[in-house]
Design a protein around this nucleic acid. Structure first.
Lengths: 334, 334
DNA sequence: GCAAAGGTAGACAACGTTGTCAGACCCCGA
DNA sequence: TCGGGGTCTGACAACGTTGTCTACCTTTGC
């Protein structure tokens, strides 16, 4: 990727000064149409492309038309959907390139990615946190008032956040189960370190407590296999729950698998947080409380753009509602 | 994202020349430890970060430690899995940042993204094509011998490609169905413009022809809903197929949905190309011919790295085998 | 005690671009 | 014929960094 033609190369070919070429490629006035034409054909012939680094260096105040999004796990379909919405909004409304990278869940790598994007100078950052508190690079950028928006999870600092109403959604989902007569409900959670999971747990506990019901709680179910095991074990126990709230989609997948293998899918109620591709493919179809990825991505983009435009008001916290979609599995009565 | 401290700012704070600071931040020899220490604390205090643009500009021959991947649709789980493998390999073995963007299937936007990454100077590009032939920007980069690897689909030019064995996988999957006695097999395809879909169709046709069986072919099933409709219609017809080959995962999801709604999931055989999250959640579990996303991503990274390292041999075509995973749905006999 | 050698620090140019300024040219009217 | 004004073009500096070269200061060896 070297030996690219520069303004000078184009200028030499067109027989003009490189400043004239600069004017032409930037559509600046003050170039006669004959010369402009000659320059344009030289540009086309050499395949000249402006060097973004040099441009950015010279006009260090200008917009880079680039924002970065740092993923915890870009293969998560929910994260991908948020990303898609975020990207579409920024590309279409602000002509801004969205670049991304994923830390695969490693906090050190996560912070390192923030660092790498910072070195490369972006207009702003969207971050899906992997841990409770920001790493050194992220903290430095927050101090520097770099436009940053956190998506989906609490960053552990006072900053702009766009997140689903985890508490309200989990509370509503659990109430939904309790309304069908269940008195003993299981909670299937993934990483307890994750704030969104903790919030869903809080909403779950709210609903259980207000109804005076009982609960069984499992955390650490980060893969379908682990969730499958946990459900199998729970249901074999003496006082097994009669309804399950899966706080995360992979846990839900494992729960469905276990229920079907045990043949108890028509007996044990299940509500799953998050969208599930499989929701209406199984019998009974799975009642879900899906996060609105489209709204989250769009809201994050809006907040970030406002910050990039110079808005320096206090951090905002945008909460996107989560609504229950009844499909059958959550309506199984005791 | 402005007003960042520069070498000069750090130098002023530490009371040295900016070149000395440069030496310290680059771990170059020739700085006394006392001064180096003073510089390091000034760096820490100001939160100095090297300006990547300036660095790249100065050393225009050097590696940028950055490659870009341009997606057709980053929300496709298969694409996401390939990306994850690609990213992990490059981050860990070559300390290279992988940035990405997605065109959401729009060829013009796709080529524009290539252009934007080119302007930003990356060491190489990985491209998941959206159309049969490269756009102007991509063509220009190919002419310029920019390291580029195409993933999963044919680019329409002579270039490095890493792709699954679509033909062989589809042929094997179809033979698998025919081996269970079916004589009339349906083909469910998504975009006919896509070369991978055409190849799967070719493999399908191979197997049908060699067995002297009959086929019904549907293209354009790009969403589960469209596939659902198509299957519903096919099965209602006079000479309905008794087995289905879904050439793409979204089409497979729709097919499963239709079969279950019609209650014919134990009667009509189904093999699906690609990985399906739902594969073993439904009854019968779905027999698949999954692409090896991990191998594809890794192979693409290896090819690209070799090109970046200066390998200028003829374009290679790496074909990653696709193996059938029998789970039940594909073994339903006539 | 002095020259040579080595280690340390800074001055300066250059990368490719854009902003500022000045110069060259042309046309027009006096 | 000449000056004034506008239009077009180019020279030059600057952005923040790294590579090269030079200058200083200390140490070493005779």
């Amino acid at each position: 990727m070297s030996d690219r033609p520069t303004l000078k190369d184009v200028a030499a070919k067109a027989g003009v000064s490189f400043k004239t070429v600069s004017r032409v490629v930037n559509d600046e006035p003050g170039v006669s149409s004959a010369i402009a034409e000659r320059v344009r054909s030289a540009v086309a012939e050499l395949g000249y492309r402006r060097n973004h680094s040099a441009q950015v260096l010279r006009r260090s105040d200008a917009r880079l038309q680039t924002v970065a999004i740092v993923h915890a796990d870009a293969t998560n379909p929910f994260a991908a959907a948020v990303h898609a919405s975020f990207e579409r909004y920024l590309r279409t409304t602000a002509d801004t390139l969205v670049v991304s990278a994923s830390s695969h869940g490693d906090p050190g790598e996560h912070d390192r990615l923030v660092d790498l994007f910072t070195e490369r100078r972006v207009d702003g950052l969207a971050v899906i946190p992997v841990s409770d508190s920001p790493g050194p690079a992220l903290r430095r950028e927050l101090d520097r008032n770099t436009p940053i928006v956190f998506i989906d999870r609490e960053p552990g600092v006072n900053a702009d956040v766009v997140a689903s109403d985890h508490i309200g959604g989990a509370r509503a989902a659990t109430r939904h189960l309790l309304a069908h007569g269940h008195r003993r409900v299981g909670f299937l959670g993934s990483r307890e370190q994750s704030d969104s999971i903790r919030q869903r747990h809080a909403g779950f506990t709210d609903a259980v407590t207000e109804a005076g019901a009982e609960s069984v709680v499992r955390f650490g179910l980060t893969t379908p296999d682990l969730a499958d095991e946990a459900v199998t074990e729970l249901l074999a126990g003496a006082d097994a729950p009669t309804a399950l709230f899966a706080a995360q989609n992979l846990a839900a997948v494992g729960a469905v698998r276990a229920l079907h293998r045990l043949g108890r899918q028509h007996e044990v109620a299940l509500v799953a947080f998050d969208h599930l591709e499989i929701a209406d493919l199984v019998e009974p179809a799975i009642t879900t409380a899906p996060q609105n990825a489209e709204a989250l991505g769009r809201a994050a983009a809006e907040v970030l753009l406002r910050r990039i435009d110079g808005d320096s008001s206090d951090p905002t916290r945008i909460v996107v509602p989560v609504e229950i979609v009844p499909r059958g599995s959550g309506e199984l009565a005791l």
